[in-house]
């Protein structure tokens, strides 16, 4: 939980979450008053895992055909929503407000 707490200190953080290989939500924190809940974060985790899997297939195929390596293994996925952005790296993620969020800082924090 300490790790999720530190993610919540990122600028514009709405929620921080941790999930399994299958996308099941393990733990989470949500900023007070945010329109987000455990069920939606579990769904979001599944969306992120599905897209990391899809991108891994694409990276494999791309590198095999073009010889341009450096995409595989996929480390992170970012979902850009209307007003918020979810950044996922490994088994953890953070939801940020688009107007305040710093995606590179999020990746750095998630990698740490």
């Amino acid at each position: 939980m300490q790790e999720l707490s530190s993610l919540m200190t990122l600028s514009g953080a709405i929620a921080a979450f941790q999930f399994t290989d299958q996308g099941e939500l393990v733990s989470h924190q949500i900023a007070p008053g945010a329109e987000m809940d455990e069920i939606a974060l579990d769904m979001l985790s599944h969306v992120c895992v599905a897209n990391i899997s899809l991108a891994s297939m694409q990276a494999r195929g791309w590198e095999g055909l073009t010889g341009m390596n450096g995409f595989y293994p996929i480390e992170g996925f970012t979902l850009i929503g209307m007003d918020w952005t979810a950044v996922v790296n490994g088994h953890r993620g953070v939801v940020l407000r688009n107007d305040k969020g710093d995606i590179e800082a999020a990746y750095a924090a998630l990698a740490g």
Partner: peptide, 29 residues
Amino acid sequence: ECDMLGVFCPGCGLVPSRGWAVRGPDFSV
């Protein structure tokens, strides 16, 4: 997927989706 996500968090800031990004060891899209 975001349309489905929207069923679980109607009106939340993640939906509808604007875009996405993936990050590999050396390159990103």
